[in-house]
Design a protein around this nucleic acid. Structure first.
Length: 912
DNA sequence: AATCCGACAATTC
DNA sequence: GAATTGTCGGATT
């Protein structure tokens, strides 16, 4: 269950009459416990409570229903009962149906309320449902509630107004919902005269069968679009006249409203009765996005950026600098004024703004700084000089773009209340500014200068002007104002093979004219490209949260030379962190944050999880070293023997046999032995698991097909290949008795796993004997000299691979062309080779000594055996002496030497 | 003809 | 259920 579902279940429970017998079980059920779990508790099997009528669920909660008026005592009893502690209950809860008290034993927080109100505090208990309540989700209890209610309303309305669900009319539906949210907010904050005016009017004026609800609402909308002086002329009904003139495009256009059902009407009243003052524009938009987005429904804002992550972008991008200036200004009125003027001209532009998180947070942070300035200048009541129109965005999805605008409006109002008081906030709020700087459209198809022109005087684009040509240089007055523009955001990621045709063509149109090999780039690189272009024209800097893959492997050499050649540099970067937000199913991706600016001598910072380092330079691999771009090499620059990829089956699993399947097949048909070989991928290598494959030479095909089981498997391979979306695979359907790609086999081979854990101290290569087949999960050197094993097992090699190759999240991803072929190794003497061979043998012997321990066992960083560790140390020592005559002090030193050597060696190559 | 990558995916603890 | 850690094969060069 997600938070919205839990909220609904808890609210349902609270509405029902109190049942002392059932309460504890119903409560647990509302928090997502399965019926079987409840049943076992009810039967007492898992109920650890020793209190009469108590229910104690291990690791979770101890609940008791007390006698009337004895709640306080009951809670004390719960707290003091030894079982509570023994069963590690996190919560205790007591109620008599009147009063309700609970305590989070771990944090010490307590909850005391009336029974009928406890559903308001459902977020207090969210950990019961396995939802880790970071402080934020507690604070967004309202947003969760509102999202759930609005979702119900939205679905009900769409169901009964199917024409509103069509692609054509969805925007109207979304606009309608945005208007509703505005009204709910306005009626609870005094923007409308009279508490709950909107909801109350619906309730009182429309018939309870809902037949005219849409007309009533429509009339109110019409009023809000009509200036007071024009109302009589336009026959605004008297009861609607109580609504102020709002407009600001929010109420202009069609006042059409979908027809309501009785249920929809009651949903609307229900939502309206929530206390919308509590809306949190930071997060609300992201949650509410799920309401209208079919794809995101159920995911609940899987891809919205959490506030801490937004600040990781905004702080180093420009907020830290503003705060520093504030610090320096002290109480100097002049300096403070200058800072305020500067801030009033700062534009924040998010070209993938979703529901506006980055913009809202940026706005609120700037307002906070402005307030401090005004306080120091003794101008507390001064109205803000930060124009909302300086916060601009582009968003593809219609609903999100509506919400982004609304979120900004709400944020502005809330800031005014916070810093200037209710009265002043109200006095200046309406009518809304008619300008809307959230553009709906495809950011990769819009000229960013037209959304965010350097002068602030440019024209706004509407959705239908998307494919505009670049603005004429003459239209842009560069000397004007000199305000800065900061671009930020979390644009969409899509790996090269995961992009749809539209996304592909977006990139094609951007990159093809510049001969950039866009087909291997992640979709997000379009944003980096356009942002870099943007700053050819204007001052400022940009930073995005991005998948780490654009700072790794081959993408570095495709994308970054073009960005950094623009007299631009990476000003700050945040190294890899796992994506996470409050959604229950977090997207599986590892992110980095990269900030790019016009080259300058200002400080550069590399941020790590909980520290930052002032560095000389940040290169696109996000390390402190000068820019190096490593391309693919088809041969080793150090003249090492050719390393090939293993054999790729693409067989739908039909050429591969488990131990079990192998045994069965051999039992049924002993002749099949001839065609079965051990198969090695990374897993088999590392975990020591066993797999086998059918390996049938072309000239043995006839014989193999005599065995019915094999014949059948070959048929299944063919079927699987024909089903593939790749032409090349379909074409090989005829050769279904063998792997789709055959690189080599049957000799002694050195193999390196393609993907392996980053936790091990060394890469775990291995020597495989004859007859073994390696899959495409292993890279292979056939008939290697043994010293090569020493090289590939060294710390130097691991450091290089981990730096220049791609990654799967944080996993190390080996590559022959990017890593092995580019690995710089000094020319080895015969003596060197002999020494290294001895080291290699020592490692192999050490592994052997611990038979049958697997590689995974042996290289577990906590359990690595001493002798194996020593063998590796020795190996590193011998190899590193060849490089610099001593051991390297650390990985930084290793990398510097490797990069230096790489540069030398490849320069030499070019000369040849 | 050969390889990089995955807003991952399957398995384990 | 979250922690761990590498499959599989498409798309591209």
């Amino acid at each position: 269950m997600n938070a919205v579902e839990i909220e609904e279940a808890v609210s349902d429970l609270a509405r029902q009459p109190f049942d002392p017998q059932e309460f504890a079980f119903s409560f647990l059920e509302a928090f997502g416990n399965k019926p079987t779990t409840i049943k076992r508790l009810r039967e007492g099997n898992t109920n650890k409570s020793t209190i009469v009528g108590g229910v104690l669920q291990r690791n979770n909660i101890h609940i008791v229903v007390s006698e009337n008026g004895k709640v306080e005592e009951a809670l004390t009893l719960l707290r003091e009962t030894p079982e509570t502690r023994k069963s590690k209950a996190q919560f205790i809860l007591a109620t008599d149906g009147q009063d309700f008290q609970a305590e989070n034993i771990i944090s010490g927080e307590t909850l005391v309320c009336k029974y009928q109100d406890f559903h308001e505090y459902f977020s207090f208990f969210l950990e019961l449902a396995g939802i880790s309540t970071v402080k934020q989700i507690r604070e967004s209890a309202f947003d969760i509630k509102a999202t759930g209610r609005l979702n119900k309303l939205y679905i009900e309305l769409l169901q009964h107004n199917p024409e509103w669900a069509t692609a054509e009319r969805r925007p109207d539906m979304n606009h309608f919902l945005a208007r509703l949210i505005f009204c709910f907010f306005a009626e609870d904050t005094g923007i409308f005269q009279g508490e709950g005016l909107f909801t109350l009017t619906v309730q009182q004026m429309s018939m309870s069968d809902a037949s005219d609800t849409h007309e009533i609402i429509s009339e109110m909308f019409r009023a809000m679009d009509t200036k007071l002086k024009d109302r009589e002329k336009n026959n605004i009904k008297a009861w609607a006249n109580k609504f102020p003139y709002v407009n600001g495009e929010l109420f202009s256009g069609s006042t059409d409203v979908p027809k309501f059902t009785k249920i929809a009407r009651s949903y609307l009243i229900h939502v309206g009765n929530l206390d919308w003052k509590k809306i949190n524009p930071d997060i609300f938009g992201s949650m509410i996005q799920a309401v209208a987005d079919d794809e995101e429904r159920g995911m609940l804002g899987m891809h919205y950026t959490s506030v801490p992550n937004i600040l990781k972008v905004l702080n180093p991008l420009f907020l830290d600098d503003l705060r520093e200036h504030l610090e320096q200004a002290g109480d100097n009125a002049r300096k403070l004024l200058n800072l305020r003027r500067r801030m009033a001209r700062i534009r924040v532009f998010d070209p993938a703004c979703g529901s506006g998180n980055f913009l809202v947070i940026a706005y609120k942070q700037i307002r906070e700084i402005e307030y401090e300035i005004n306080k120091r200048r003794g101008e507390k009541n001064l109205s803000s000089e930060i124009p909302l129109t300086n916060f601009r965005g582009i968003e593809l999805r219609d609903f999100s773009s509506e919400i982004a605008r609304l979120a900004l409006i709400i944020a502005e109002y809330q800031c005014d209340v916070l810093y200037r008081g209710n009265q002043l906030a109200l006095a200046e709020f309406l009518p809304l500014d008619a300008e809307n700087w959230i553009t709906k459209g495809n950011a990769l198809r819009i000229n960013w200068l037209s959304v965010c022109p350097p002068t602030g005087t440019g024209v706004k684009l509407h959705g239908d002007d998307l494919f505009s040509s670049p603005l004429d240089q003459a239209e842009i007055d560069f000397d004007n104002e000199g305000g800065e523009t900061f671009i930020c955001g979390n644009p969409p990621y899509a790996g090269s093979s995961k992009q749809n045709t539209n996304q592909k063509s977006d990139l094609k149109d951007l990159f093809d004219p510049h001969n950039i090999r866009f087909k291997n780039l992640d979709y997000i690189s379009g944003w980096f490209w356009l942002a870099s272009k943007f700053y050819e024209q204007t001052d400022g800097a940009y930073a995005f949260v991005t998948t780490n893959s654009i700072c790794q492997g081959e993408q570095v050499n495709i994308l970054w030379p073009h960005i950094l050649s623009n007299n631009q540099e990476i000003g700050f970067a945040h190294t890899a962190f796992k994506w996470s937000n409050l959604a229950q199913n977090n997207a599986g991706v590892t992110c980095v944050i990269v900030g790019v600016r016009i080259s300058s001598s200002a400080d550069k910072f590399l941020y790590f999880e909980d520290s930052r380092k002032n560095v000389r330079h940040i290169n696109p691999y996000l390390i402190d070293y000068r820019d190096v771009f490593i391309p693919r090499y088809s041969n080793s620059i150090s003249n090492l023997p050719k390393m090939l990829k293993g054999n790729q089956p693409t067989d739908g699993g039909n050429l591969i046999l488990s131990s079990e399947e192998k045994r069965e097949l051999e039992e049924i048909s002993p002749d099949s032995r001839e065609f079965i070989r051990p198969l090695f991928g990374a897993k088999e290598l590392i975990d020591g698991s066993k797999r086998y494959c059918l390996w049938i030479e072309d000239d043995k095909l006839q014989k193999a097909r005599m065995i019915p089981q094999i014949k059948n498997r070959i048929k299944l391979v063919k079927q699987a290949r024909l089903k593939s979306s790749a032409k090349s695979t379909q074409n090989k359907a005829g050769l279904s008795h063998r792997f789709i790609q055959i690189q080599g086999y049957g000799r002694l081979s050195l193999v390196m796993p393609e993907v392996s854990s980053e936790k091990r101290e060394y890469l775990t290569g291995e020597l495989l004997g004859a007859n073994c087949i390696s899959t495409n999960k292993l890279f292979t050197v056939y008939d290697p000299e043994i010293y090569l094993f020493s090289v590939c097992s060294s710390k130097l090699h691991k450091t290089w691979i981990e730096t220049v190759c791609g990654k799967l999240e944080e996993r190390i991803s080996y590559s022959n062309v990017l890593g092995y072929n580019t690995f710089p190794l000094p020319k080895l003497t015969e003596k060197n080779k002999k020494d290294l061979t001895e080291c290699a043998e020592e490692i192999l012997i050490a592994r052997e000594r611990h038979f049958p321990a697997t590689i995974a066992d042996l290289y577990d960083p906590k359990k690595m055996p001493k002798d194996l560790k020593q063998a590796h140390e020795r190996n590193d020592e011998v190899l590193e002496r060849i490089y610099i005559g001593r051991r390297f002090r650390n990985d930084t030193e290793r990398l510097e030497k490797l990069f230096e050597l790489y540069t030398q060696m490849t320069n030499h190559l070019k000369k040849v």
